[in-house]
Write a protein that binds this DNA or RNA. Structure first.
Lengths: 134, 134
DNA sequence: CTTGACCTTCCCGTCACTGGAACCCCCATA
DNA sequence: TATGGGGGTTCCAGTGACGGGAAGGTCAAG
């Protein structure tokens, strides 16, 4: 398979696939003309990484997941540990975003949004209190 | 004020303040020795930007907010429009993260996490269905 | 033989900083 | 006067995960 076909099948841009080869996530063979020649296994790995990325795993985490994926003697506990850590990061991010959302929604709610210059949003941003209190 | 004092007062790293000058968010004067000499107004602008950043506004958005902040003839509607757009982005991100969270939580829940190699998480990642269905 | 769709590599740009090197300035103390 | 330490300055490179685009090689069809 050439890169366009694999890209379509894996749902990834060709650029991304080249990048993944660049950083060593996959090692497709080459045809005589220099084109990348992808095997079924390459496609599976790319689709796997694509799904892991869509769940928010970083490339480093994907590399680890891929190693576990390919290790028939893996312990599922190792996979779960990775996933649990990532899940915690996602939840922390959600908490952070919800705090932003709450503050911002309050400010937006308080602002009349008309032609007049008085603006509770700008007032909120210019006074301590809406910033991160660490 | 020198940069360290302003950094402490605004709650921003000195590096960040230099960066903000670099991209034109602030224009502090210079002392004869070449040191940045910050006025109160600079400090206020930095604190303002710091709070906007902590609410997730991008630098581009901060620049726009700062311009409105400094424009006494602004319409609060312009500020509100910016904030509403940003709020929508935050909410979209939250929705995205919650979808990730749900999928990942399911997978984690299904995985025994022991020494055995069988792993529903890896199975989930290797089969279509948990990826972004676009 | 040409056209157009592929493929290749390479380099720069993104975003908002962060780290580090190399160097300058100012004050206090021995 | 030397020196030491704690400011400050600039500039360069790296981060993560690609994306855009240039310059050029390859392949199949008409």
């Amino acid at each position: 398979m050439n890169i366009a076909e694999v890209a379509k099948a894996a749902g990834l841009p060709a650029k991304t696939i080249r990048y993944y080869e660049d950083i060593g996530l996959i090692q497709p063979k080459r045809s005589e003309n220099g084109y990348r020649a992808f095997a079924e296994a390459d496609l599976h790995k790319l689709a796997f990484v694509g799904r892991a990325r869509s769940l928010g795993f970083s490339i480093v985490e994907c590399r680890a997941l891929l190693a576990l994926y390919e290790d028939r003697a893996r312990a599922s506990g190792d996979v779960k540990a990775l996933a649990v850590t990532h899940l915690a990061q996602i939840r922390a991010k959600i908490v952070e975003l919800r705090a932003m959302e709450a503050t911002l929604a309050d400010l937006v709610h308080a602002c009349s949004g008309d032609h007049r210059p008085d603006c509770p949003i700008l007032r909120g941003l210019s006074q301590p209190g809406s910033g991160d209190p660490q």
